[in-house]
Design a protein around this nucleic acid. Sequence first.
DNA 1: TTGTACGCGTTATCAC
DNA 2: GTGATAACGCGTACAA
Lengths: 340, 340
Amino acid sequence: MKPVTLKDLAKQLGLSVTTVSKALKGYPDVSEKTRELVKSLADELNYVPNSFAVGLRKQQSKTIGVIIPAMVHYFFSNILDAILKEAENRDYMVIIMQSNEDYELEKKQVDLLLNKGVDGMLISLSNHTRDFKHLQKIIDYEIPLVLFDKIAKLVDCSKVIIDDRKAAYDAVSYLIKKGYKRIAHFRGDLNPQNSIDRFLGYKKALLDHNIEFDPSLVYLCNSNSDFSEGYSNAEKLMQDHGDNVDALFTVNDLLAIGAINYFNKKNIKIPEQIALIGFSNWFMASVVTPSLSSIEQNAYNMGTKAVEILFNEIDAKLNDTAIEHQKITIDTELVLRNSC
Amino acid sequence: MKPVTLKDLAKQLGLSVTTVSKALKGYPDVSEKTRELVKSLADELNYVPNSFAVGLRKQQSKTIGVIIPAMVHYFFSNILDAILKEAENRDYMVIIMQSNEDYELEKKQVDLLLNKGVDGMLISLSNHTRDFKHLQKIIDYEIPLVLFDKIAKLVDCSKVIIDDRKAAYDAVSYLIKKGYKRIAHFRGDLNPQNSIDRFLGYKKALLDHNIEFDPSLVYLCNSNSDFSEGYSNAEKLMQDHGDNVDALFTVNDLLAIGAINYFNKKNIKIPEQIALIGFSNWFMASVVTPSLSSIEQNAYNMGTKAVEILFNEIDAKLNDTAIEHQKITIDTELVLRNSC
DNA sequence: TTGTACGCGTTATCAC
DNA sequence: GTGATAACGCGTACAA
């Protein structure tokens, strides 16, 4: 079965393609009667405009592209959820690609999306992206672009982020105020700005409260399996510092949960012997025992905001109106549970 | 900046559009020299064929559509992961939509994808889908379709599923062999086939092992927050049966984890006083305390298989070769941990 | 009020 | 070996 075209309708009604087209679009210069006739037949035959033809003609696709580092990830799937829902509301379709933290792949995907004629792009950069020519290309083609979470400061486009440094600062300050003094940190990979900022927030909180920063309390975590790295680093932490550590702030929840598992196994009491705060507030944090305090990143809000800005820029481009790029910071909050 | 077209290249080289097109496609009937010339300029100017035009011409989009009930879901995000990776390998793009368990939305999304000219579709039906005209429409349009996980038996297309009944049967049989006799079940919504089959597997395992089926041990769970429903039903279960229940099989992991939280709180020992087995083997199951035994659904395999079949059917259609629809059952396995 | 003609960018066919 | 022409389906300026 082939889709019905304007030509089919025209032939059946003994009209020209033009008239049929105009009738369907509600142009004023076509008689009431003809319009009704055309519309009812189109309805009956289930006519829908061919999107290739429309795209070719109008140079727009009613489609946006999204690139994220990984799909199986509570944070990103929540962001996608928001993006899909908002796009749905606007009758837009969404092409999703995962870069897999691979810069070359990310670059290729940008080209594919560009070529596909998407009306806009939402990108969260891979941890290994250090060159931004591919993003510049998007901008050169005048395709609206919004970066979120993992952004590039130097690229001239709208951005939606959280204040990682402040969030970490708040978490660690909270621990300090509760009386903890020897606070360890499981930090993330050295490259991405997020983990740098969270580390800096940790450090600054210590200094601001007159607690000496002890580098030996900081453990670098850059494997791909956070959970087991959390577990093993907790073990190391105990070997290295034993009783001389009373709290732990981790760059993400999985590391904390790995650590919790180790502490539970060794009967190290949480939070009496060691308190924990994670980062991201994955659903999991609320169901482990003891439940894990963490920083809520409001992924859904971030997704909503990012796609909202994108659509604004797409609309602006259609109307040929100028628009300022925005840089939005989504609020985070420290969610307290039983681990501290 | 506008994308470079064949016409641009032709003009710059003083050739016809036709020749340029042929040169780029490596047709034999164009001189070596011309070919090189064209290719190098195309390279230099970053020419890429306009996908609308190609789509219009060839009636194919190098794009597939996927509809799932929900994005924020360990099972589905793993399936998507597999689909995206396989599509990537084949240079296909993926449009993802979530039906949100809403039949009307699902129907609309099918139309959108059809209209978009996707080359194939992968769909996991919403729990409320009972009418399959929208799927028939896909088939009438001769667009390859593969249903996965939540399928419709009567629709004539390829399908990829697990054997829910057998998986549940195995889990409950295992409990019985370990000596448990009073086994409760938190069952899922009444409509979707999956939860029906899991319930039937549970029931059959009991009967086959000469254990009387006690309906009062079955609790219906159909709210949207499995975790808290697991918690509250565990409470009810204890009130109703107290010591006269020794195991619990749940239709999904979150219900079990909710129950675990209740049992932990009340100091009810797992598995001494009550053993548990969940379903789906979400990552979470491995990190809760005690860790939860569960049934691994091999979502990634399911996604890979589904997309593989889809591409086979797409290829077959392109080559105009006939193809048999397949019905594949993905193996499940009982993953044992500390909860039983 | 209706229809003709052209162009969007590509590709297949056929003529030179 | 090269190029003119038509066609994919739609939308619009213009003519009738």
